[in-house]
Amino acid sequence: MEREPAPGVKRGRFAPYGLLAPGVLWLALFFLVPLATLLRMSLSSKANRFDFEPDFTWEWSNYSDAITEFGEQFRRSFAYAGIATVLCILIGYPLAYVIAFRGGRYRNLLLGLVVVPFFTSYLIRTFAWRTLLADEGPVVSLLQDVGVLADGGRLLATSWAVIGGLTYNFLPFMVLPIYVALEKIDVRLVDAARDLYSNGWRAFRKVVLPLSLPGVFAGSLLTFIPASGDFVNAQFLGGPNHTMIGNVVQNQFLVQLDYPTAAALGFILMTIITVAVLVYARILGTEELV
């Protein structure tokens, strides 16, 4: 015999959808619709240079043209973002490790210091690097004095300045997820590894590192994805030969007003990043995160 569900149960069945609705609506309006518009735009063609309302014509050549014309910027973007991500891991992992395991009562203070730069605008911080790395600036003079940098050598407007800026700007996004992953690890597991004939290094390699990989993965995404689309660092710290794909998209959209090409560039970027993330997840063995 079927039992009449209690009124509360009946309401419960629809409540989840009600709770989801605002989010779904928001995403549909401000993510899916713009995405569709962008896709449509990327397949449209302009009648002439001053046609600002291109017609939808399945113009696939927008994609092939974009790749031929801006392949170099694509390669550069991913190279810069990749190197910056690796540097962020190399700097951020030991930092997160020390805060998580050796921070003691200074732990929260140290974490606070990692986040402190966010109190200033991203643009201002990046701009400040121009002063630091300027030709007559303190860093260049110091490096010239100790002979690392040749006289007349410079830092500003080099690839290393752009990579340095990216690394600096995205470091907190690497440190925080790694810290969270490390902090969750039960220190008794390290005791157990040491008890089972592992010295500190092996205990780290076999126990701490694998258990913290989800944090490294999350940090890499938060670093690599925005870094490969970034244009601020290349704009402020790079020269004409260091433009990244973000700069090109920005230029196409806002200066050249070539919306179809810009839209196509955006889609290519998204596709490559998605594929790269999936491959990375497979390598790291953290598929369940994606």
Binding site: R188, L189, A192, L196, V207
Partner: peptide, 10 residues
Amino acid sequence: NTVFQHYALF
């Protein structure tokens, strides 16, 4: 070798 209080299995 030790058997830990909460086992500490990996």
